[in-house]
Amino acid sequence: MTTDKHLKRAARELAEREEISYTAARRRLTATPEAAVSETLTPPPAAAETDQEPTPPRLYPIARAVCAAECDGTAHPGALCRPWQPEDSKHIRYEVRRAAKLPNGRAGELCERFEPPAPGYSGGSFFAREATWLLALVYAMLTDQHPELRPGRAELRAAVEADDQAAVDAVMEPLDRAAARLLTKVPDRWWGEVKPLLDAYADFVETDDRDVLTWQEADERHDVGRLVDKWRRAWTESRNHNGYMEAPGVLWLAPKGWLDDLLVEQHGGHGDGARVRLTDGRPAIVYAAEWNEAGAPVAYRIRELEPGRHGNIGKLVPSLTSDELVPRDQVAGKLNDVA
């Protein structure tokens, strides 16, 4: 009886699909062995639903007030905790709150603080400021791959509530230092090491199927997704204003300089652009610092200064062919000259 029921259903479907009569379809099916028609062509409803979620998503209320760091949910039964975010501290200066917001806020704050003004751009170099999102992407990658670098929420909240930007920088220092150690101004290292790491992270983000547990996490995923979109566009060829196809790229040297200046401000040393004299007497300019896990720079990337020859006679200018990594103890001090 079951086989006959399946045969009738198969005949109806075959007749509809082939646009033939039911009788012709049944005759065609009965000419084949019964085992071939004993299975239904359309899976029963129970089988069709096996790939669906067993239950629909559930909505949970969220506590209206920001929870304390040690909240276990008993203070607001029936509602999820609402963890503190920097923007919840309304009475604090904007720059302090922005410096505590990962990944975009802190990247924007460092650019605002350490990108020097340029002719025609009072807020700094246009192309350097366009690289703010790159630093944000690096922050996102580091905190995703190394959760221990993410600052503790209680420590960060205490620093923000104190309206103390230096305290926020101190809490963020492990992450800033990791980013400074990753980024570089050496082309071979950028193209050979750093860019492939970011490419791999972009691939991971685009295929990430981890469950999103909170709305804050959903917002963070959205922000990181937009950063990855910018990363992809930066290396996708498009037609420029001259009509040529080229990838826009990004000024990847800029964020390294901001991080170096920040850490030098905290621990001493020579920042980006500092003019120094080496222990062997040579004048040089610092264009990058090398960092260890703590403390001041352990080495500097320098370019030797040489007398100007093209409209800058009498001045010391960086040599375009000089690129040297020198240990910290080979830098005697600042160079007392007029740039």
Rank of each mutant, 00 (worst) to 15 (best):
E206L: 15
D211V: 15
G295S: 07
D188A: 13
D229E: 14
R233M: 08
G257P: 10
P174M: 10
V228E: 06
P255T: 14
Q266M: 07
V171H: 11
A299Q: 09
D229M: 11
L262T: 01
L259K: 02
E237N: 07
D211Y: 06
V212Q: 09
E293Q: 12
V276K: 00
R181N: 02
V171W: 08
M172P: 06
D211C: 08
R239N: 10
R277A: 03
A299P: 07
D261V: 00
V250G: 05
W258A: 04
G281I: 08
E265L: 10
R282S: 07
A294I: 09
V250N: 10
K256I: 12
W258S: 07
G281R: 11
L198T: 09
G295N: 09
L259Y: 02
H241T: 13
V286D: 01
W231L: 10
M172G: 09
L251I: 10
P196T: 06
G269I: 04
R275F: 00
T236N: 13
E246I: 03
A166F: 08
H222G: 09
E220A: 15
A167C: 14
D229R: 15
L197G: 06
T184V: 00
R181A: 04
V186I: 09
D211S: 13
P196A: 07
M172W: 08
R210K: 10
V250D: 05
V224S: 11
L253G: 07
A294W: 11
R189I: 13
T184K: 00
T207H: 15
R277S: 03
A200W: 08
N292W: 12
A284C: 02
K195E: 14
Y201P: 09
T207N: 14
